[in-house]
Design a protein around this nucleic acid. Structure first.
Length: 972
DNA sequence: GCAAGGACGTA
DNA sequence: GTACGTCCTTGCA
């Protein structure tokens, strides 16, 4: 007997994640995983021949509902995100597929598929049979037998790997570092974040294997825990002994499930065309139908599609309700003239096709002369596009030097043009250019026309970097695509790096830069890498870029994201590149003077703190401070953080100070000064670029969930403004000689956006009339007239307005205002009564995020929340709040992005010489020649205020305030 | 040398 | 209550 047990549920999930199948039925229902599943069943019967041919077969699924593990540990699998909407309708269809192939489909309430599989495997083995478990799930690896009587078989399609991959003792060992009989011990120690098996915190697979190989079992390990030398490890094991024991229960498969069918009942039955073809036809699987018709020597035309299945599959699945589908189809048809199904199918085709093309590093070329370079330029002209990537000596494109450029015109090809590789020792005397490289001036002269040519698309990954760098070499670039921004437009910030994208979409992470240049102290620059090694890496980068482009670009149309990408993301990148390139002028003297002042005042606070504490300690250590306040001084009311340390945040210290603990106030003051010194006055001067004498931040266009930018190295979006000391730092941001700074900021943009989206007439009227919005809110809520309103009343209303934008909770509002939760709840209730549209808006966002897994901005940006249906209540509540905030924050972010894109051409049209330097979410900073500010400001304001148009006609006025001054503090 | 956690700067 | 990035300490490799 040879029993083949297919882990059906795991197959669907893994197939989906390994290779998102985009194929759909003509009605839009996703069926890619069902298709893959049918292919696999067919392939198994085809490929397993001779001694591997199974005599018995079953497909096992997870049943809905609880299992015994939920009783052992309530958090078990609690973190698991809900199945993707695309997958949900495919679960029942896979069971139908199994029956259509005349194979028993088994699932049992209260048991996981793994337990049933383990049970059958045991029964078959006891009967002297052989077992093959079709799964790659690590949880089943404990079943593998060294004598080969139980093996696993991984059938998930992965490019570049054989279709069937056996998993025996060796493969288990390489995964867990132990033999299969010890797998549960290792799993119990290291835990599993996906299934929420706790394990012992801080212990990973490596450490677990090491421990188990020494001590054999968890129990024996716990008996000998005193022998562990590493302090932290020993204590963790001691403290978490029970967690380890519970974890072992969770990961140990039951082999005694009371199965209904005995093993003999699983004997293989011949496929019955009368069952099979009606199913395949209902699924519209033409290729499989043809193959099986040949295989069975049957005529599919003799059978009609199963009417029940064909009908049942259409509507109702989460995320695919009819209205949404019709809307999406209409938008797509409008955009392209192609039908929904065909654009989706095209995207899926391109993906499958691209993914199947193997990588051939040996095919990559190295360009060393003009003829060779010309051939590649010609190739770019003949196909009309080229993926390209610059290699440089560093991550900062304002200081890095160009080392080489790579190209690819089609998946699988690639070339590297080395320009700045050095040779010999990397010291200041050795080196010099390595042999066999084109002269950089000659090469760039040849490339300039190509990069500037608007008829040839240059495809980058993170174009902003290359654009900024090439600009320094006088190489302007026109007509670009950017795979990073394609990915961001489609999927948000979930994948960032080339290797993550490559891994996900191509099944190929690509060479890691670390392997090439190392990391940390011994790190080399790309210039020190050999030309040959550099070429393999660089050419592959361009090769991957063009592949990702082929996969992602068709998805824009299929998923209705073309407008977002083409009108916002792509045009913004060059704008940001120029802003980064301009930098901002900073007065080193002012910062250095402030640094001295802050240091001196901080030192006084430090001495005072030591005095008050009666001992010397490190004020920068929350740990030491907590011990002094709550252990030594024995103060009441201390709270602990999630890791068990004393909480010493500013709010806690503020409370203590009010209770008459002077030390608390001293610490707060010290921390503030120290923060200003460490993060700003000391750090900023080091960012002044030697070449430009200015500070160049780097914006990230693809990092923020809601569509905002972020700024780093240095972060110029968090320069202090709230305190007087903090504002002194802003005075160091000065205009260049002969120029002034203009700061233009949107007034209450998020509340205005809220008024528009949620359609709150009272708010809109208030904005229309130019009222003080917080005072108006206070007046509505508390019945206090705006005239002579106490500042505290306005302050509360302001907090509530912000609370609404953040997805208010009574808990949070109470915290913010220092009032009781009941009172905060009453405020919220009153607010909802006064502005009933707000509640409707919030409910709608919550409904959408649960149904679709995303919410949208008014410009069509999608913000994904994969955890919207999490089993964890606090996580769910978090997603609810974030889904309320995201369309507001995101729509405001879209508006300023649009303003930035339009700003330069509008200024040029008005013949105004103004340089846009910085963006701080609702504020833009410009530098203009002194005396021209009065001409510049009206244009800037007009562009910003009208930025939503014509895409969206806002039903509230947008107001921008702008001022000019010599420094940022005064301009703001 | 690196990762995690706490704290804190901004909108 | 939303969204970020940076500095510092701590603990481990």
């Amino acid at each position: 007997m040879h029993l083949l047990l297919v882990d059906g549920s795991a197959y669907i999930f893994r197939a989906f994640h390994a290779l998102p199948q985009l194929s759909r039925k003509s009605d839009g229902l996703p069926v890619g995983c069902v298709q893959g599943f049918c292919n696999m069943l067919f392939k198994l019967t085809e490929d397993l021949k001779g001694e591997d041919e199974p005599t018995h077969m079953a497909v096992i699924f997870d049943a809905k509902g609880k299992t015994f593990r939920d009783d052992v540990y309530t958090e078990y699998k609690a973190q698991r995100p809900p199945a993707p909407a695309e997958l949900v309708p495919q679960f029942p269809l896979t069971r139908s597929a199994t029956r259509a192939f005349n194979i028993p489909s088994i699932e049992m309430e209260g048991w996981e598929a793994d337990d049933i599989i383990a049970t059958y495997a045991r029964l078959a083995r006891e009967a002297g049979g052989k077992v093959t478990i079709v799964s790659s799930d690590k949880d089943l690896m404990q079943m593998v037998e060294p004598d080969g009587s139980i093996r696993m078989l991984d059938t998930i399609p992965r490019p570049g790997q054989p279709p069937l991959r056996w998993i025996g003792v060796e493969e288990v060992f390489s995964k867990f570092g132990v033999t299969p009989d010890k797998v549960i011990e290792v799993q119990a120690l290291c835990g599993d974040s996906v299934d929420n098996v706790p394990g012992v915190p801080g212990i990973g697979v490596k450490t677990a294997a090491e421990l188990i190989n020494t001590y054999g079992t968890i129990e024996n390990l716990l008996d000998h825990v005193d022998e562990i030398k590493q302090n932290a490890r020993r204590e963790k094991l001691r403290d978490n002994a029970d967690l380890a024991r519970i974890s072992k229960q969770l990961v140990t498969l039951s082999q005694t499930v009371p199965v209904e069918l005995d093993v003999d009942a699983l004997a293989r039955q011949p496929i019955e065309p009368g069952k099979l073809f009606p199913f395949l036809k209902a699924m519209e699987f033409a290729t499989i139908t043809k193959r099986l018709a040949t295989h069975l020597d049957a005529n599919p035309d003799d059978f009609a599609a199963d009417p029940e299945l064909a009908a049942k599959t259409a509507p109702g699945a989460v995320g695919f309700d009819n209205a949404a589908r019709a809307e999406a189809r209409a938008a797509r048809q409008e955009a392209t003239g192609r039908s929904n199904a065909s654009t989706v199918a095209h995207a899926a085709d391109m993906h499958a096709q691209t993914r199947a093309i193997p990588f051939k590093p040996e095919a990559y070329e190295i360009i060393r002369d003009t003829e060779h370079l010309q051939r590649w330029i010609d190739a770019a002209y003949s196909v009309g596009h080229v993926a390209t990537d610059t290699e440089t000596t560093g991550l900062d494109n304002q200081t890095a030097d160009l080392v080489g450029i790579s190209f690819s015109t089609a998946p699988g090809n690639g070339a590297y043009l080395p320009l700045g590789h050095t040779q010999g020792e990397g010291d200041i005397f050795g080196g010099g250019l390595a042999e066999g490289q084109m002269d950089i001036r000659v090469a760039l002269d040849m490339l300039r026309p190509l990069f500037a040519d608007r008829s040839i698309l240059k495809i980058f990954h993170n174009a902003k970097y290359d654009l900024g760098l090439l600009a320094r070499y006088d190489v302007p670039v026109h007509s670009i695509d950017d795979t990073l921004l394609l990915s961001y437009s489609l999927d948000g910030p979930q994948f960032n790096t080339m290797s993550e994208l490559g891994e996900h979409w191509l099944g190929h992470p690509g060479q890691s830069i670390k392997d090439l240049i190392g990391s940390g102290k011994g790190q080399k620059t790309f210039a020190q890498v050999s030309i040959e090694d550099g070429a393999r890496y660089a050419a592959e980068d361009s090769d991957m870029t063009i592949r990702l482009w082929r996969v992602l670009k068709p998805r824009l149309v299929a998923e209705n994201m073309t407008t977002l990408y083409e009108t916002i993301e792509r045009p913004l990148a060059p704008v940001l590149a120029r802003m980064e390139g301009r930098g901002v002028n900073i007065d080193r003297q002012i910062l250095s003077r402030l640094s001295g002042e802050f240091a001196q005042r901080a030192a006084a606070f430090e001495a005072e703190a030591h005095e008050l504490a009666g001992q010397s300690f490190n004020l920068g250590s929350p740990k030491q401070l907590g011990e002094i306040l709550f252990d030594k001084m024995g103060l009441e009311g201390g709270t602990k953080t999630k890791t068990g340390a004393w909480s010493t945040g500013a709010d806690v210290l503020e409370d203590l100070a009010l209770k008459g603990i002077p030390l608390a106030r001293t610490i707060v003051d010290w921390r503030q000064l120290n923060k200003l010194r460490g993060t700003y006055t000391d750090a900023l001067p080091d960012y002044i670029n030697e070449r430009t004498k200015r500070v160049h931040t780097t914006y990230s266009q693809h990092s923020v969930l809601t569509g905002r930018l972020s700024s780093n190295d240095p972060n110029l979006q968090n320069i202090p403004v709230r305190t007087a000391d903090g504002r002194k730092i802003r005075t160091a941001f000065v205009a260049a000689p002969g120029k002034v700074l203009i700061s233009a900021d949107y007034s209450q943009i998020e509340l205005r956006v809220l008024a528009h989206i949620a359609d709150i007439q009272a708010l809109k009227d208030a904005f229309e009339e130019g009222l003080d919005i917080h005072a108006m809110t206070a007046s509505e809520m508390f019945g206090v007239p705006v005239e002579g309103m106490p500042s505290d009343v306005r302050r509360r209303a302001k907090a509530i307005n912000f609370g609404i934008i953040y997805g208010i909770s009574a808990f949070g509002l109470a915290n913010q205002l220092g009032i009781g939760r009941g009172e905060a709840g009453d405020y919220i209730k009153t607010y909802f009564e006064r502005f009933p549209g707000i509640r409707a808006y919030m409910d709608e966002q919550k409904r959408r995020v649960k149904a679709d897994g995303f919410v949208s901005t008014i410009f069509g940006r999608k913000i994904n929340f994969p955890n919207a249906n999490s089993h964890n209540p606090s996580e769910r509540a978090f997603v609810e709040r974030a889904s309320i905030n995201a369309p507001i924050q995101g729509s405001a972010a879209d508006i300023i992005r649009r303003a930035m894109i339009r700003m330069e051409p509008e200024l040029a049209k008005a013949k105004i010489d103004a340089d846009m330097l910085l963006q701080v979410h609702d504020e833009l900073i410009f530098e203009v020649p002194e005396g021209t500010q009065d001409q510049a400001i009206p244009v800037i304001k007009a562009v910003m205020e009208g930025a939503a148009e014509p895409a969206v006609r806002l039903t509230v006025p947008i107001q921008v305030d702008a001022h000019a001054a010599n420094n940022w503090d005064e301009a703001h």
